[in-house]
Structures are given as structure tokens and as C-alpha cells.
């Protein structure tokens, strides 16, 4: 381990910011703030509305991928039913407004909380099982939700295969339905949400809770022997990732103004999985960038009707050949290069 310490000292000694750690942290925060501000404003001036729309869709997919990636990397569990939360919250939002006359904000809160409650109940049932069964069960639960909106008995609420148009009067968080639908106005919201959720996932990962999750993933029995509960942390993680997907689904419905059975379909879940695999699951940046990459790739290939084929190919290629994903691979490569160069410097 002493090698690692030397490397870090060397790297710091050779870096531009030779000051104390707190100065360095300040510089990072400033850089992040700059990047955040630039990313929120610049594209709305530089990019066409079409590109902005795809970009925002990519960010939404990326956030959904973040939820998949978080559980995958921290708990070793793969969710194949992300779409049920993503589309389901949209349905609830629409139904709460049209059928129960809730105000848009109240409907939003209702939809959010109902999905959280659903995730808690579902999680309570399925996080006890082994990872493979968990994967199968999330797929089954997702299919259950997508079947239930097609039920004849709920047709008055869900309109079956036709889907629902979601409009609201007044404003939610100071924005009208038209504002949300406007690509230029929606981009900064999606961008900010991606940052907030990304940081939330980052913070949880770095917390004691994240450490406990990873330890359970590593060896559940050992954790139980050490006096840790292994059930509640995993349940909490499941609810947490569903909260991410929940926010993401609400943003989606506010932006598109429409929910349909397609938004609940297995292809949305597998696209999120692919976006996570493309970006790499180990950090917050990867899945979000993966989502954006995937959205633009889908735009290229979608014209030929091969979107799902692309999804299938990407799953196979990224798991077999690039298990860390593009972003994860780049970070890993950069790290290896910096270690190599510092070693070279040391030997010189």
C-alpha cells in the first residue's frame, strides 16, 4: 500500500495546485460550478431545438440508468423493471389530476409518494431473494405494471393502449405545461436534475451506508456475523434508486405531456440498463453520460428501425468486451497512465 501513498504524494507534488487539500477542494468545487453553469446555459444558445430535445431525453435516460447502475455497483442487484416506475409515476400524475381533481403540485406529490410506497412494498418482498431471482422478479413486477394499465377494468383511468395526454392548468414550481414542453426551457431543468441526482448518488456511495451496502454485496454472511442487518440496508437502497427513477419519470411526463404503455415497456428498462453499461456503473457520471450517448446513437439507428437490435448488441458487447463501460474505461485508462507516469518519474 505504500506505493499508493507515494503515488498520491508524487501526483500532488507534480500537480498545478500544490497547496493544501482544502484549496484543492475549493478549486474542484469552482470548476464543477463553472461546468454546471456552462452546461445549463450554453447548449440552449448553441444547439438546435432538435439536439436539445434528444439531449434532454438522453439526460432522462441517464438518470434512469443512474438508478440501475447504483444498485448494480453498490448492491450487486440488477433491476430489469425500471420502466414500471418511470412510466407508472406519469400515469399516477395524470390520473390524480384528471380523475381526482388534485392540483398539479398535489398530484405530483401524490404520484411521487405512491411510487415510493410501491417500491417499499415490492422491495420488502424481493430483496430477500438471491441476485438472480431479484433480477427475474423485477422483470416480472415491471411486466405486471405494464399489463395492469392495459386491463379492461381500468380502461376509464388508463385509456388502454391509447395512453393519456397529460396537461395541467396553472404552474408547477413556477412553470406551466408549455414551459416544460419547450426544449430550451426544459434543458436546464434536466441538466440540474442530473447533477442533483448524480451528487445524491455520489454522496450515498461515499457515506457509511454505501460502505455497508458494498460490504453486504461482498459477503452477506460476514456482515450478519458482524452484527449488521443485511435486509434493511438493501431495502433502503432499493427505495433510494426507485426515488431516482421516480423523479426521472416525473420529469419525463412533465416534458412530454403524454404517457403510454410504451413508457412502461421492457425496452425502456433495457435501454436504461444499456446506458448504464455503456457509461460504466461504478460512478455517477458514467450512467448519465451513457444515457446521452445512447440517446444520440438511438437517433442515428432508430431511423432504420433497429433500436432494439442496438440495445441487444450493446448489452452483449459491453458486458463481454468493455465491462467498465466507455467512461469507466477512460477513467481506468487515465488512472493507469498516471500511475505509470508517476512510477516512471520515480524511477527516473
Amino acid at each position: 500500500m505504500s506505493g499508493g501513498t507515494t503515488t498520491r504524494v508524487d501526483a500532488r507534488g507534480g500537480s498545478l495546485f500544490a497547496g493544501s487539500a482544502s484549496v484543492r477542494a475549493l478549486v474542484y468545487v469552482a470548476l464543477a460550478a463553472l461546468l454546471f453553469g456552462f452546461g445549463a446555459i450554453a447548449p440552449t444558445h448553441l444547439a438546435s431545438e432538435f439536439v436539445l430535445r434528444i439531449g434532454a431525453g438522453g439526460l432522462l435516460l441517464g438518470m434512469l440508468a443512474l438508478s440501475v447502475a447504483f444498485l448494480m455497483s453498490q448492491a450487486g442487484l440488477v433491476v430489469l423493471g425500471a420502466a414500471s416506475v418511470y412510466g407508472g409515476v406519469g400515469y399516477l400524475f395524470a390520473i390524480a389530476m384528471s380523475k381526482w381533481d388534485l392540483s398539479p403540485t398535489a398530484a405530483l406529490l401524490f404520484a411521487f409518494c405512491t411510487v415510493i410506497a410501491y417500491a417499499a412494498v415490492l422491495g420488502a418482498l424481493i430483496v430477500r431473494t438471491n441476485p438472480l431471482a431479484f433480477m427475474m422478479l423485477t422483470l416480472a413486477a415491471g411486466e405486471m405494471i405494464s399489463h395492469s394499465v392495459m386491463l379492461e377494468g381500468l380502461r376509464d383511468y388508463t385509456s388502454g393502449a391509447d395512453g393519456l395526454v397529460v396537461t395541467f392548468k396553472g404552474a408547477v414550481f413556477g412553470m406551466t405545461a408549455a414551459d416544460f414542453a419547450n426544449a430550451t426551457q426544459f434543458w436546464p431543468i434536466a441538466w440540474s436534475a442530473a447533477w442533483i441526482l448524480g451528487f445524491a448518488a455520489f454522496a450515498v456511495r461515499r457515506s457509511r451506508f454505501g460502505a455497508i451496502l458494498r460490504a453486504i454485496q461482498e459477503n452477506e454472511e460476514r456482515m450478519r456475523f458482524s452484527g449488521f442487518g443485511t435486509y434493511l440496508p438493501r431495502l433502503a437502497a432499493f427505495v433510494f434508486v426507485n426515488a431516482i427513477a421516480d423523479v426521472c419519470g416525473l420529469l419525463h411526463v412533465l416534458n412530454s405531456g403524454f404517457v403510454s404503455p410504451e413508457s412502461l415497456g421492457l425496452s425502456v428498462s433495457t435501454n436504461a440498463l444499456v446506458a448504464a453499461l455503456v457509461g460504466g456503473v461504478a460512478n455517477s457520471t458514467g450512467p448519465i453520460a451513457g444515457g446521452v450517448l445512447f440517446a444520440f446513437a438511438q437517433d442515428q439507428f432508430g431511423a432504420h428501425g433497429f433500436t432494439q437490435l442496438l440495445t441487444g448488441l450493446a448489452v452483449v458487447v459491453f458486458i463481454v468486451l468493455l465491462p467498465r463501460g466507455v467512461i469507466g474505461g477512460l477513467i481506468e485508462g487515465a488512472r493507469r497512465r498516471s500511475v505509470l507516469s508517476s512510477k516512471r518519474r520515480r524511477t527516473a
Binding site: G76, V78, L80, P131, L132, M135, T270, L273, L277, F306, Q308, L309, T311, G312, L313, A314, V315, V316, I319, V320, P323
Partner: peptide, 17 residues
């Protein structure tokens, strides 16, 4: 096993398409 399961999922999608 999870990775292999995901590969089979991907292959299944390819075959279906």
C-alpha cells in the same frame, strides 16, 4: 452469473429482433 444472465438477455433481444 449476473453478467452471463445479462448477456443471455442481450442475445435474446438480438434473436427476437
Amino acid at each position: 452469473h449476473i453478467e452471463v444472465a445479462l448477456v443471455t438477455l442481450g442475445l435474446g433481444i438480438i434473436l427476437g429482433q
